[in-house]
């Protein structure tokens, strides 16, 4: 589903965020990207979501070479990915329903279908009944779950999460991680960047460990150094 081949990212000013990274994630797999802050976790996710382009090497997502996707095609590519952010990135002037509906509105779904799917997504994250509320009235954990509902409402094949539990207490974090696991169990590829090592150990899932932009360890060992 995701394949990095000797991929490097150097930012302007000569800072190497990632150097010579290679790994492969199978469809339906769930994996963590870990490492200290500044190790390159976010950059790695940004390359997959085409928020950044690699300086060298290749990134393939679902068999598609991202370097061949032109700027104008990026929106259509991103519609197949669900992205979850540490700071939720919700729109505070819209209701929970409208926030979650946004990806469907963009893709041009019918009104009836939007209602059905939004409620299904909210049900999945346990927020059914809060659809008319505004995000500001919700707790941090609930806001993050709205973010997850928005990321999965259009049934993406790939779910990316950047520090999704960064601001949450351990119980809420565990809950969120289990939601991710449920998605991976129904065939969604899930890639989570996190430095919550305790929780990751608990999840017993593959870890891609970055250290100063280099691949320090890959929990599965497969494909490494190809």
């Amino acid at each position: 589903m995701i394949r990095f081949t000797q991929t490097s990212k150097r930012y302007e000013g000569g800072y190497d965020a990632l150097s010579n990274i290679s790994f492969h994630i199978e469809p339906g797999e769930m994996a963590f990207v870990t490492g200290h802050s500044g190790a390159g976790k976010s950059t790695l996710l940004k390359l997959i979501a085409l928020l950044e382009r690699p300086t060298r090497g290749q990134v393939l997502v679902n068999g598609q070479n991202l370097s061949r996707i032109k700027r104008r095609q990026i929106p259509y590519f991103r519609r197949n990915i669900g992205i979850i952010f540490q700071d939720h990135q919700l729109l505070f002037d819209r209701t929970v329903f409208d926030n979650v509906a946004l990806p469907l509105i963009i893709a041009g779904y019918t009104r009836a279908e939007i209602g059905r799917r939004v409620r299904a997504a909210l049900d999945k994250v346990g927020l059914l009944g809060k659809e008319k509320k505004y995000p500001i009235t919700l707790s941090g954990g609930e806001q993050q779950r709205v973010g997850i509902a928005r990321a999965v409402v259009h049934k993406p094949l790939l779910l990316l999460a950047d520090e999704p539990t960064g601001n949450l207490d351990p119980d809420l974090s565990r809950e969120i991680m289990h939601i991710f696991r449920e998605f991976s169990q129904v065939g969604v590829t899930v890639l989570v960047a996190s430095h919550d090592l305790e929780l990751i150990r608990e999840m017993q899932t593959r870890q891609i460990i970055l250290h100063q932009g280099q691949l320090a360890d890959d929990g599965s060992g497969v494909e490494y150094g190809q």
Binding site: N62, Q64, I69, Y76, F77, N80, Y109, T110, L157, G187
Partner: peptide, 27 residues
């Protein structure tokens, strides 16, 4: 025409497996 078509196809076929009535993918 390679704008994520692979993914779209796969997504569509996945949805078809789920049953036509629940696809709602806009024609």
């Amino acid at each position: 025409m390679d704008r994520g078509l692979n993914m779209v196809n796969e997504a569509t076929s996945r949805r078809n497996r789920e049953g036509a009535s629940s696809t709602g993918r806009p024609g």
